[in-house]
Write a protein that binds this DNA or RNA. Structure first.
Lengths: 150, 150
DNA sequence: CTTGACTCCGTACCATACTTCGGGGTTGAT
DNA sequence: ATCAACCCCGAAGTATGGTACGGAGTCAAG
């Protein structure tokens, strides 16, 4: 199967047909070749591209950020300096997300341990889990006090 | 400083004043006590709560998901079973996000290594980085073919 | 050569997450 | 007392990311 039609791509990627047109209008999917009739003929890798887009959205990236990520991937021959910068910034951003997700996970597993232990948890760790965000204003002015709701 | 006014909370949390009212309407911020005049008097931890909300959004959670997370944190005394289930599901979800972000990071660092090496990268790893998503339809039917743009 | 499924397109509509507007009351410093 | 700066509210507007509609053309099987 060399090429796919819209309904096939949509089904395989788990999205609505209209979403494909929408992405194309937005420039996040390249315009596929057409038959004489005007029907789109998608290359099969489109499916993976769409899946990537959907998943990246769930990871907190906007469509325009995702577009940048995808462009990055294509630009590997040209002026590497700008690409390198962008990629490095993205890596840092991703690292930051990973760290915060790990903190969130930790506070949830703490919560679970407290449930298992059948005793109430002392503090409210979930919010604190993202409290140490380094790019924020005051830079962690308050020490991690206990007793948030007395 | 025992309580804060809207503008103070907004400034400290890095959001618009109206966002606080919006969150309150949505129920994601609890209604703070008021003065006789109607002015809100926020407890200082509101700032951390709002920062948490903003960051959790950047990690791909919607406001209603965030509300669930925050509720979870409060429910640690009651019927632990449901709470436990929810928390466990959230931990899995977070793990999945972490794994995918790590895959994305890996493919970006690969890209960077290729840049450093001053040679073009062979394949298109970024999209493949999220290709192995287990909850997707066919379950990775296509082998990772090379030659994406012939 | 008809029929039903699929495709095209533009436009309009929807949900989420805010932001702006407009008009009026409160606070607190001078 | 006055006045800027702040606060209140409801309602309307914006941006993003789609989804639905409707009318017309296309494709492939019978």
């Amino acid at each position: 199967m060399p090429t796919l039609r819209t309904a096939e791509v949509a089904r395989l990627a788990g999205v609505n047909v209209e979403t494909l047109r929408f992405y194309e209008r937005k420039g996040i999917l390249p315009e596929p070749p057409r038959r004489a009739s005007g029907y789109r003929e998608y290359p099969p890798e489109t499916v993976e591209r769409v899946k990537f887009i959907k998943r990246a959205q769930e990871l907190g990236f906007s469509l325009s950020e995702i577009q940048n990520l995808l462009d990055l991937r294509q630009m590997t021959g040209g002026k590497s300096d700008r690409v390198k910068h962008l990629a490095e910034a993205k890596v840092e951003e991703i690292d930051h997300k990973i760290r915060d997700l790990e903190a969130m996970k930790r506070s949830l597993t703490d919560l679970l341990r407290a449930c298992d232990g059948r005793r109430a948890i002392a503090s409210c760790p979930i919010i604190e889990s993202l409290g140490g965000c380094p790019r924020c204003i005051g830079g962690k002015s308050e020490p991690p006090t206990e007793g948030t709701t007395p």
